[in-house]
């Protein structure tokens, strides 16, 4: 019998687009390449869906790092990538104000077979959140 689950620190949320990055993560699985288990991949159609507040809420709820894995310029929704990137600029600005380390939020393009980039991103973020610990809010 498995012992009682432990509360996990330093969770990383990954927003992965269903056409590129999510199958990319599956491809990493197919290769049986291990990566830290504090990663939670949400399948999204286009990350433009998320308002700036979503990211702060996540940090407030206790998520330590967020990686937006998009299709980049290959985004099937015309204009969505640029709109989303612009939104993230706003998020960064506010993160600065809130004195949150900007590295906690990463925007990257991952394709369906980008195993190496995926692992790089995840491992880097894991290293980072282990160093930084959970986000601290001034207020």
């Amino acid at each position: 019998m498995s012992p009682q689950a432990k509360k996990q620190e330093n969770k990383i949320l990954i927003l992965a687009t269903e056409t590129c990055a999510y199958p990319g993560a599956d491809s990493v699985g197919q290769a049986h390449s291990t990566y830290p288990s504090n990663t939670y991949i949400l399948r999204v159609r286009a990350p433009v869906l998320f308002p700036e507040s979503f990211y702060f809420d996540c940090f407030k709820k206790g998520i330590s790092g967020i990686i937006v894995m998009s299709c980049g310029e290959e985004c099937p929704y015309e204009g969505a990538f640029t709109a989303m990137a612009k939104k993230l600029d706003g998020v960064y600005k506010k993160m600065k104000e809130m004195e949150l380390d900007l590295k906690r939020l990463r925007l990257t393009a991952i394709c369906t077979v980008c195993n190496r980039s995926f692992l790089n991103e995840v491992n880097q973020m894991d290293k980072l959140v282990r160093e930084l610990g959970p986000p601290q809010f001034k207020k």
Binding site: A5, Q8, D26, G29, H32, S33, T34, S37, Y40
Partner: peptide, 18 residues
Amino acid sequence: NIREQVSWVHQGDPATDK
């Protein structure tokens, strides 16, 4: 998705937890 994104990339208790 608990195969490609869990059992094939994590082991042991953390896998069950995730």
